[in-house]
Amino acid sequence: MYRIRFHGRGGQGMKTASRMLGSAFFAEGFEVQDAPRYGAERRGAPIFAYVRADRAPINERGIIRQPDLVIVADDSLVAVPAAGVLGGMTSDTVLLINSHESPDTWRHRLNAQSTILVLPEPFEPEDHAELPYAGAACAGAAAQLLGVIPWASMEQALRHELAELAPAVIETNVTRARTAFERMEPHRGCVREGRAVSAADYVPPNWVEVPFEAARISAPAIHAPATSVEVKTGLWRTLRPVIDYDRCSRCWWVCSSFCPDSAINVDAAGRPEIDYDHCKGCMICVAQCPPHAIETIPEHDAQAAEGGKE
């Protein structure tokens, strides 16, 4: 069975990518499962989708824990533990990243034994909230890496999944997918089918007798204020607002009042400070700042600059 996981952010089309690949497998006579995984995550938050394909009916269900192929549409997620991109990867897993950086850089950075590839033509618009054609490119590349899906089936699947879009948009998607498919030719078939878990040799589940606990402990209640600050929603951000303090007029904290997330704090002197651990990158502050003192910087650039400083 092939087990493929697509990682991206809410809004980047990972569900569509998984469906394109699922349909292509299906057209080739495979039994298929494809599904997105939803949580409470919103636009920009890390999400994933997955595809299983086999010649035999598929009994396995749910999240893929040991993938044969992992595709990452947004390279800023690779290092984010909460995104779970690297979960369950082994030396047999192929990792395909939509990135400007080379496979060697990633191999070095991740210290991974896996086969690491990058999409030859990364799609990186300024705002990563939407990567319009990344899904198609990822699916196209995946088809080639799997080696069992000819281009004709991939194209048919793509047109089927995107049928409701404008014709020009469909054509661009097809072109991007085709390019990715062709450029992956040297790696054709590098993904190998994973094996089933063995019943003869397995790690037992280590069940526990669930201890009885009184309601004061076991009720679904939180006995502390504002614990949500531990959730780093800054991970969702694809654009970063940066305050130019020379231009900031120390106004009547417009940015702070309008920030839906309480992520701009103003000190006693009237100086606003953005809490990047929690700023989701909505950019309302940029739009509302009276002296236009807040700039927009792509998050991946900002992070690259920060990385450079280290």
Binding site: G39, A40, R216, A219, P220, A221, I222, H223, A224
Partner: peptide
């Protein structure tokens, strides 16, 4: 016990879970 609403003891009861 501690399952009450009081100004001195902020409590979120019956919250959602994920997973």
């Amino acid at each position: 016990e501690n399952v009450v609403f009081r100004a001195s003891a902020p409590t979120s009861q019956a919250v959602a879970v994920l997973g």
